[in-house]
Simulated assay, not measured.
Amino acid sequence: MLTNLYFVRHAHSTYTPDELGRPLSEKGFNDAEKITEILKKENIDIVISSPYKRAIQTVEGVAKIIGKEALIENGFRERNLSEKPVEDFYLAVTKVWEDFNFSWEGGESNISAQERGVKVTLQILEKYKGKNIVIGTHCNIMVLIMNYFNGKFGFEFWKELNMPDIYKLTFDKFKLKEVNRI
């Protein structure tokens, strides 16, 4: 019995310092409608999202189509890179990808963020066997989860992601069988 996880990297958001409440931009809302159109053909059973507003807004159209509310799962929140804003985001992200154990002050290492994301992913695979599940999430945590199941998904892959983006991961129990960009 195969289970499909559709990881959806959120659409473009309007920057605010409020990470949790940052909303989608006008472009983001337009792209979220496209995400809904794409995923309505996939026989989705469940929609789960990070608690961040931009992730919820990206997948809530799919939840409406299937007549269910998006379930909020804190484990899919974005990785906390640093306690304070970093001067050079790209440099800061490069450093944590070069050393999975490294963390900036007050931030999560790749290892700790990956453990958090993988733990909830395994719980979902167990609870919703044989289902098609949309997961509204973020770039870093999504790639860290994918990296756990297949090491080819790393920093180079991270650099190539679009906003939004959809990756369908097909599992046989807990074994990743296939990854397709939708």
Rank of each mutant, 00 (worst) to 15 (best):
T3P: 05
L5K: 06
Y6P: 00
F7W: 12
R9S: 04
A11G: 14
S13T: 11
S13A: 15
P17C: 05
D18F: 06
E19D: 14
E19T: 05
K27F: 13
G28N: 13
G28C: 14
E33M: 06
E33H: 03
T36H: 05
I38T: 13
K41Q: 14
N43T: 07
I44C: 07
I44R: 07
I46P: 08
I46F: 14
S50V: 11
Y52M: 13
A55Y: 05
T58D: 00
V59T: 05
G61P: 06
K68Y: 04
E69W: 02
E69T: 08
A70F: 04
F76H: 00
R77W: 05
E78P: 09
N80G: 09
L81H: 04
K84R: 14
L91W: 07
V96M: 11
W97A: 01
S103Q: 12
W104H: 15
N110D: 11
I111Y: 13
R116K: 13
L122F: 04
L122D: 10
E126T: 10
K129C: 09
K129M: 14
G130R: 11
G136M: 10
C139S: 14
C139V: 09
N140Y: 03
V143D: 03
L144P: 04
L144T: 00
I145G: 00
Y148V: 05
Y148D: 02
G151Q: 14
K152S: 13
K152G: 06
F153M: 03
G154V: 00
F157I: 08
K159M: 14
L161F: 09
N162D: 15
M163K: 14
M163Q: 15
Y167N: 01
T170I: 12
D172M: 12
D172H: 12
K173W: 08
L176E: 01
L176W: 01
V179Q: 07
N180E: 15
